[in-house]
């Protein structure tokens, strides 16, 4: 893992990618800091940082797009996969290398709360916990980008798809607002989710039994629950989807100054899930 980590990190600084990412993200953090905190006099750096989320939607894919797509295109994955290294250590090595590049502009941002502290009154606790949240969000975004990159051998497609996915995640709250709350809508929604899961499992395993069981179980269980506890279905789909929100925890940190452990855990779990999926995607490619 160490060798892969070192090589990946060096490759970001042998090419322009690392410098461009750091320069752009740091410049926008600086810009928002100047506008929000220094000009408008907002006391917390957390607010400025949360506004830079849009920059991350475009910058993170630039970081992640080449991670696996390029290896596949130049066939260097043939070296990694025939060496005595495991796929998880390759994936983790790459992940931590990207996290390191991601961390650098955040570390520069760590100076901002100190500046506020010197010239006025701020809260280091609130600001630094927002930076911790952004670190976890970075892990989540990077794991998604890495997963998408492992699915294709085109860097451009990897970048565009990752941008689209990150955009959906960021506007997730606005989307879930439009989900109908009636029990029937929830029932249909749950059945669709089960069938979608079954379809995805079938597509990736080419095996009928497990997806069929999931689909039948989902159908029966949803309908049974619907007739037994209709009231529970009231707005259940909306609640479920809203629980996956990333902006919820961010608002808690930034607007309500609450250290939202649950929200943080959700973000970290999603990052772990996508790292796991990346490992599976790389393994799977060996078999097709």
């Amino acid at each position: 893992m160490k060798a892969v980590y070192k090589r990946e990190l060096e490759s970001y600084f042998n090419t322009m990618t690392g410098y461009v990412f750091i320069a752009i993200v740091a410049a926008f953090i600086g810009l928002y800091f100047v506008l929000y905190n220094l000009r408008m006099g907002h006391p917390y750096f957390a607010a400025a940082l949360s506004s830079t989320i849009a920059v991350f939607i475009f910058a993170v894919p630039v970081l992640t797009m080449k991670s696996f797509a390029e290896e596949r295109k130049t066939k260097t994955d043939q070296m990694l996969l025939t060496y005595p290294v495991s796929v998880p250590s390759i994936v983790l090595g790459k992940f931590f290398a990207m996290m390191t590049v991601y961390l650098i502009p955040l570390l520069i941002g760590c100076l901002c709360p100190l500046v506020i502290r010197i010239v006025g009154k701020g809260s280091l606790v609130i600001d630094y916990s927002a930076i911790v949240l952004f670190l976890c969000l970075g892990a989540f975004f990077i794991s998604i980008g890495m997963f998408v990159s492992a699915l294709t051998d085109s860097q451009v497609i990897a970048a565009v798809v990752t941008m689209a996915v990150l955009l959906v995640i960021v506007i997730w709250d606005s989307i879930t607002n439009y989900i109908p709350e009636t029990p029937v809508a929830s029932l249909i929604g749950f059945i669709v989710i089960f069938f979608l899961a079954a379809f995805i499992i079938y597509r990736s395993t080419r095996c009928w039994t497990a997806p069929a069981l999931i689909a039948i179980f989902g159908l029966v269980a949803s309908i049974a629950c619907y007739f037994m506890a209709e009231s529970w279905f009231q707005g259940a789909l909306k609640k479920l989807l809203a629980a996956l929100s990333i902006f919820g925890p961010m608002n808690n940190f930034v607007s309500y100054y609450v250290f939202d452990v649950k929200g943080l855990l959700i973000v970290i779990c999603f990052a772990a899930l996508f790292i796991f999926l990346t490992i599976q995607a790389v393994q799977r490619r060996r078999w097709n």
């Binding site: 060096e10 042998n14 994955d77 290294v85």
Partner: peptide, 20 residues
């Protein structure tokens, strides 16, 4: 399976690390 952005020395060193 060579990385274009590395020099041969860096590359072979990387291979040696990877081969433990």
């Amino acid at each position: 399976p060579v990385y274009g952005d590395m020099t041969p020395l860096e590359y072979v060193t990387f291979a040696a690390e990877l081969k433990n």
